[in-house]
Nucleic acid binder design. Structure first.
Lengths: 179, 179
DNA sequence: GAATATACGGAGTCGTCACTCCGTTAGGCA
DNA sequence: TGCCTAACGGAGTGACGACTCCGTATATTC
């Protein structure tokens, strides 16, 4: 792979993340090309389909999250670690709308793989927190995913105040504590 | 207004609710017309813009919710009443994706009015539950809305199991209880 | 049972967007 | 340095969806 091709691939992925963050999955491929400073043709050579572009973006995002989750796994305070992971997943741009939307039903094998990795890292964190008695034991990774996805989706509405977002997160975290 | 026009208006609104439930706001106007058994022209005569069609659907939905909330207000068990309202808002079709998406920032004046009505009915229920000591006192209607929207959005993903939906709702309700 | 205005149907228009094609450009190797 | 092929750019294509227009049909009124 030629050096410029490699560089362009990166620029496109990074542009895609921003565009999809602004406009959701409706963001046009042309907008991505513009933002990346390349022609549309280039985008389609790297990612033959818009779907593949989206999935590549998702994979990238999942990998980052997985790395973060693994870091957190080393922490001694399991409850704080889980809390921080949730905050990371929920916070940030609206990209997560679509990114987290795929947490449930992945499509491509690359996405499946990345999703599996992330899932296992999250499960490990969740288990530790449960063993430490910080989280109710009847909550599964799926349950946690649904909650995280909900917070991320609902909070991505522009007009939402930061304090409201925080409060909602707080309620969910309180609800995760053992009765 | 001619009788047939009145009837068609109703059929269109009801068709719109179903179509948007299946496909979200991307559902095409043509699909609505087809489902309602009328021509596209008829849809556009009643609702000059797709946006207006969506908003009319939203208003209708809000009005139903408001009526339900007011019914519940008569109940003696405030906590159970609030719980039931939340379940109603969260459950049901994916229509809520878009419908509840508007809970935050309404646009048309009709929507604003319907939204205000709903909000005040919900506030009343929430207050009663708080006075009964069933819900933490630092939660506002906005906070509740964010949580409800989150549960509705995240749960509308087709692959989500009913048990997961229930568990997530359970966590949120537990989190709403006073510490 | 006409007369008439109101409402309907759906082919047609315009804009947008994913995706293609090919002439041009420029990495990288000899 | 020059060749050669990988990679680029962006006008062009086809499909689709919102919205228009007007000839036809039917509720309503007398």
């Amino acid at each position: 792979m030629r050096a410029d091709a490699q560089a362009n691939r990166e620029r496109i992925l990074s542009a895609a993340e921003q565009v999809f963050a602004d406009a959701g999955a409706d963001g046009s491929t042309e907008a991505v090309a513009l933002r990346a400073g390349v022609g549309i043709g280039t985008v389609f050579r790297h990612f033959p389909t818009k779907q593949e572009l989206i999935e590549a973006t998702v994979v990238r995002h999942f990998e980052q999250l997985t790395a973060h989750a693994r870091d957190l796994n080393a922490r001694s305070d399991a409850a704080a670690a889980l809390r921080e992971l949730i905050e990371t997943m929920v916070g940030g741009t609206a990209t997560k709308i679509m990114l987290l939307g795929l947490l449930g039903d992945p499509t491509t094998d690359a996405v499946v793989r990345a999703s599996r990795e992330l899932r296992s890292a999250v499960r490990s964190l969740l288990r530790k927190a449960q063993q430490a008695g910080a989280v109710r034991s009847d909550v599964s990774v799926d349950d946690l995913y649904l909650l995280v996805r909900g917070l991320a989706l609902a909070g991505s509405q522009r007009s939402t105040k930061a304090s409201t977002r925080r409060k909602a997160l707080d309620v969910v975290l309180a609800g995760l504590a053992p009765r």
